[in-house]
């Protein structure tokens, strides 16, 4: 497989939403087997409109299903079994709760049950996280559920380049089912995106910032928050933070995470899901098991406290695992 893993010379600056839309455009153009079940990849975000030219151009590749998450996720699984490469765009991630039986108990088990003879290469795309005003039912972060379901791949891009590279790989190359989780608030994030058919195979973590004192393992939007925290800590405390972005939870690039932990001996793990048995907890357990000898302080988690996400801005803000909490967590390690 020939893929461009590292950024080649030429890049442009794109918003996350633009890179996502560009990926969808290219995927549709390059593989006639791709069909989109729903196509509101950019949700109700300020950048929602960037999908419009893509959905116009590829209208014949899109079906708009009834409000039947369970049925249309199952339809995607069946279509994948019959040789298509469906991408389900579910919009708000909590809507996927209606479809858990098909995602977890069908899509995820098919390859294992047939010894790999039957495969379901389907992408379930969803917008997760505290979007602002979503309240308890539109702010959900179910990434830990998917990670806890063997047979599913889980992608959580943090940058415009990564969303494009990972979505292209999931849609065009992967042989297994993928839950692809974009944070609603990442859509406006700008960053360099390589020109050309930029693809990132799953299972390759990326060190987003190098540093020798503390490792922050951060997923998705937490990477931006960790980079902000790192800059502040360098400026105010002289602490050099290394930010490691797994990019995919399953498969997980353990080697890159362990190498950083062994270098720094101090770790904060952060993800915008709940603390209880969340992604940060899972990462912390893996690191503790494999790198205990290298740790010079207990691993700290920065995640959402175990409370349903409220509507009022003041209450919502209190739950977000933001830069402030990351800075405090790193300082507490010293």
């Amino acid at each position: 497989m020939s893929v461009e893993v590292r950024a080649p010379a030429a890049t442009r600056t794109l918003k996350f939403a633009e890179a996502l839309a560009e990926a969808v455009d290219e995927i549709c153009a390059e593989d006639p087997r791709v069909v989109l079940i729903g196509a509101r990849f950019t949700g109700h975000t300020p950048s929602a409109h960037v999908m419009e030219p893509v959905t116009r151009k590829h209208a014949s590749r899109i079906v708009w299903p009834p409000i039947s998450e369970l049925a249309y996720c199952g339809v995607a699984v069946g279509a994948a079994l019959a040789g298509l490469r469906p991408i389900v765009e579910m919009s708000t991630a909590t809507f996927s709760y209606e479809a858990v039986p098909q995602i977890v108990n069908e899509a995820a088990v098919i390859a294992a049950m047939s010894g790999g003879r039957v495969r379901a290469p389907v992408v379930f795309h969803m917008l997760y996280g505290i979007r602002g005003g979503g309240g308890p039912q539109h702010s959900g972060s179910p990434q830990a559920w998917w990670w806890n379901s063997p047979g599913l791949q889980v992608a959580m891009p943090s940058s415009p380049a990564d969303v494009k590279g990972l979505l292209r790989w999931a849609a065009l190359r992967s042989e297994g089912p993928t839950v692809f989780m974009d944070h609603q608030r990442l859509m406006e994030l700008e960053g360099p995106v390589p020109t050309g058919r930029h693809e990132i195979p799953f299972g390759q973590a990326d060190v987003k910032r190098s540093g020798g004192d503390v490792t922050i393992v951060a997923t998705s939007i937490q990477v931006s928050r960790a980079l902000e925290a790192a800059n502040r800590l360098a400026r105010e405390d002289g602490i050099e933070v290394e930010v490691v972005d797994p990019r995919t939870l399953e498969p997980l690039d353990r080697a890159t995470i362990f190498a950083s932990v062994r270098k720094t001996g101090r770790v904060v793990v952060t993800d915008e899901s709940h603390e209880n048995a969340g992604v940060a907890s899972g990462l912390a357990a893996i690191i503790a098991e494999e790198c205990f000898d290298a740790l010079r302080a207990p691993i700290r988690r920065v995640a959402i406290p175990p409370t349903p996400v409220p509507y009022a801005e003041s209450l919502e803000r209190a739950l977000i695992p933001d830069t402030e909490r990351l800075v405090a967590a790193v300082r507490a390690l010293r």
Partner: peptide, 29 residues
């Protein structure tokens, strides 16, 4: 799979939308 039975769900109703998905793929092609 070789007989056109690619996947059997034991969950009541589990196979139905998958069957619809296969039919959807056949129709599209």
């Amino acid at each position: 799979p070789e007989l056109g039975i690619p996947h059997t769900s034991a969950i009541v109703g589990g196979s139905l939308p998958i069957a619809a998905g296969v039919a959807f793929a056949v129709r599209r092609r």
